[in-house]
């Protein structure tokens, strides 16, 4: 493999309440090649606990990349984003907002909170796969992560 980041060593934190989307994203990443790299959390509260290494998450490693949905029960993506980008220990982690919201307000807010990029979930599967491929190519294969 010529990739700059070895598959095994990459930890991707996916925070997404819709199991369908979880499956789609996992399937799309390298057509299923990164399945083991994913840590999936389905609400903002557990995501924050995870990132703070609280309770059951005391031994879990820090993720290299965060894929974050915005609309979730309890604490939502906005709270998670705020936690990550205001915590000195976390703010270096790239956060990709992956949501179905097309709201201009959400987009502006996300960038103001230092989100690294904002992507609207495409309706068409091919488009979906294309987007995920772009994420993979860029964030996992092109850029150097801290």
């Amino acid at each position: 493999m010529t990739e700059s980041n070895k598959n095994k060593s990459v930890n991707i934190l996916l925070i997404e309440d819709n199991p369908g989307d979880v499956t789609l994203i996992k399937q799309a990443f390298g057509e299923g090649k990164y399945l083991d790299s994913f840590i999936v959390l389905t609400d903002g509260e557990s995501a924050i606990s995870f990132l703070r290494k609280e309770g059951q998450y005391i031994t879990t490693p820090r993720p290299d990349l965060i894929l974050l949905d915005l609309n979730m029960p309890r604490k939502d993506g906005r709270d998670v984003l705020a936690e990550v980008k205001t915590n000195p220990a976390l703010k270096h982690i790239p956060v990709i907002i992956l949501t179905s919201s097309e709201s201009q307000q959400d987009i502006t807010h996300a960038y103001n909170m230092q989100a690294n990029c904002y992507i609207t979930k495409p309706f068409d599967l091919n488009q979906y796969f294309k987007v995920v491929k772009l994420i993979e190519d860029f964030w996992l294969k092109t850029v150097k992560l801290p």
Partner: peptide, 17 residues
């Protein structure tokens, strides 16, 4: 309706793929 429909569309397409 868009959200569930997106799921249907996506997974039917995934099936096809």
């Amino acid at each position: 309706l868009q959200e569930p429909l997106r799921m249907i569309t996506s997974f039917v397409q995934l099936l096809q793929r």
